[in-house]
Simulated assay, not measured.
Amino acid sequence: MEREPAPPLTGTALTARNLVKRFGDLTAVDDVSFQIRPGETYGLLGPNGAGKTTIISMVAGLFPPDSGSVDVTDIRMGPSSLGAKRHIGLVPQELAIYPDLTAEENLNFFGRLQGLRRKDLKSRVALVLDLLGLGERAREQTKKYSGGMKRRLNIGVGLLHRPLLLILDEPTVGVDPQSRNSILEAVAQLSTEGTAVLYTTHYMEEAERLCDRIAILDQGKVQAEGTRDELITLTGGVDRINLIGTGRMVAAAESLRTVPGVQQVSGGGLSGLTLTVTDGPALLASIITNAATAGMAVTSVELTRPDLESVFLHLTGKALRD
């Protein structure tokens, strides 16, 4: 689908500096800073209650930070900063569509509120419906839509006015796998076309699939930031291979410790051997051959690679969804 390009943008789409927000004795956001470049998808990854929604509420100008600042396309954001808000498309967790209106009517209504003129609005509605896979059911009342279709339409409302920064707050919560995949594909396409995306999620696989850079949040603080590969290095970046089998287990363990790339071998009893290695897929064949040569009959092999869940556990001492 062809999409009209966003206006050219130099510098950053968003700069958040030292954001702090307190609610009574609770510090919901504690000194959070980050930048997003045009065409970049930036993820805020953390469990429920980590401060993600509070951060995007400050970014969107829904309420001011207690301290710190937000610039959208180099315009300072505040509750009355219409110049900055004009460049933002905000898609909240809660649905913001009218159930008795069709998808087409919803988009036309919100498009007029966003100041789109009639001819431009008509083409934008068609483009957005196409992008989100809703064109064939554009004239159905949205109360007849599935939860996933409603979520997609909710995103469409935020896209109509060609925002330079699209903010998506947990957009796939509660949707079926097919709709979830459609949403992720649409977001991936937006970033290739120059739209900066701020994406909040507690789903590790979404952050890994979509985001160019990721900030890992816990208890209102950024614990780490970087690309997926940069974050993985925080765990040591090593893989784990579990070998189950019978035979000369102790001899196999001793032999495997001499294989280049194998950092550690533990076990040797009935539970098998556990190896810590630098590049599991590349070493797997030689490890199995070496174990067999040493007298171990391998019956089962499991390769585990580090992921963002591992990073979160390493940084916080708890699982991402605890």
Rank of each mutant, 00 (worst) to 15 (best):
residue 89 G to H: 07
residue 87 H to G: 02
residue 68 G to Q: 02
residue 104 E to A: 14
residue 63 F to I: 03
residue 78 G to D: 12
residue 77 M to N: 01
residue 93 Q to E: 15
residue 106 N to I: 06
residue 75 I to Q: 12
residue 96 A to G: 09
residue 100 D to A: 14
residue 84 A to K: 03
residue 88 I to C: 05
residue 102 T to I: 08
residue 117 R to I: 07
residue 45 L to R: 06
residue 50 A to P: 09
residue 54 T to S: 09
residue 77 M to H: 01
residue 118 R to G: 11
residue 116 L to P: 11
residue 44 L to V: 09
residue 62 L to W: 01
residue 103 A to L: 08
residue 95 L to V: 06
residue 128 V to K: 14
residue 125 V to K: 12
residue 113 L to S: 10
residue 74 D to R: 03
residue 120 D to R: 15
residue 111 G to N: 10
residue 62 L to K: 00
residue 128 V to Q: 11
residue 109 F to M: 13
residue 64 P to N: 00
residue 67 S to L: 04
residue 89 G to I: 07
residue 127 L to D: 15
residue 88 I to S: 03
residue 88 I to Y: 02
residue 129 L to T: 10
residue 46 G to E: 06
residue 55 I to R: 00
residue 90 L to E: 02
residue 96 A to I: 08
residue 122 K to I: 09
residue 52 K to N: 07
residue 105 E to W: 09
residue 88 I to Q: 02
residue 74 D to T: 04
residue 57 S to E: 11
residue 96 A to Y: 06
residue 50 A to Y: 06
residue 111 G to Y: 12
residue 113 L to H: 10
residue 57 S to N: 11
residue 56 I to G: 00
residue 81 S to A: 15
residue 87 H to S: 06
residue 115 G to A: 11
residue 96 A to F: 07
residue 59 V to C: 03
residue 103 A to I: 04
residue 50 A to F: 05
residue 62 L to H: 01
residue 103 A to Y: 10
residue 68 G to M: 01
residue 50 A to W: 06
residue 125 V to R: 13
residue 122 K to G: 07
residue 78 G to Y: 03
residue 84 A to E: 05
residue 127 L to I: 13
residue 66 D to P: 08
residue 83 G to K: 07
residue 89 G to R: 07
residue 69 S to H: 00
residue 52 K to P: 05
residue 59 V to K: 06
residue 111 G to A: 12
residue 128 V to Y: 12
residue 59 V to S: 00
residue 113 L to Y: 13
residue 59 V to D: 00
residue 65 P to A: 04
residue 59 V to Y: 01
residue 72 V to S: 04
residue 92 P to H: 02
residue 66 D to M: 05
residue 70 V to L: 02
residue 71 D to M: 04
residue 70 V to I: 10
residue 47 P to Y: 07
residue 83 G to D: 09
residue 126 A to Q: 14
residue 116 L to C: 12
residue 116 L to G: 13
residue 119 K to C: 08
residue 51 G to A: 04
residue 53 T to V: 03
residue 43 G to E: 01
residue 130 D to S: 15
residue 100 D to R: 14
residue 92 P to L: 01
residue 43 G to V: 11
residue 99 P to M: 09
residue 62 L to Y: 03
residue 59 V to M: 02
residue 103 A to D: 11
residue 69 S to Q: 04
residue 47 P to I: 04
residue 130 D to C: 10
residue 121 L to F: 13
residue 65 P to R: 00
residue 118 R to P: 11
residue 98 Y to K: 07
residue 124 R to P: 06
residue 116 L to D: 13
residue 84 A to M: 06
residue 120 D to K: 15
residue 54 T to K: 02
residue 72 V to E: 03
residue 129 L to W: 12
residue 131 L to I: 14
residue 78 G to E: 08
residue 62 L to T: 02
residue 90 L to K: 02
residue 93 Q to W: 03
residue 116 L to R: 11
residue 60 A to P: 02
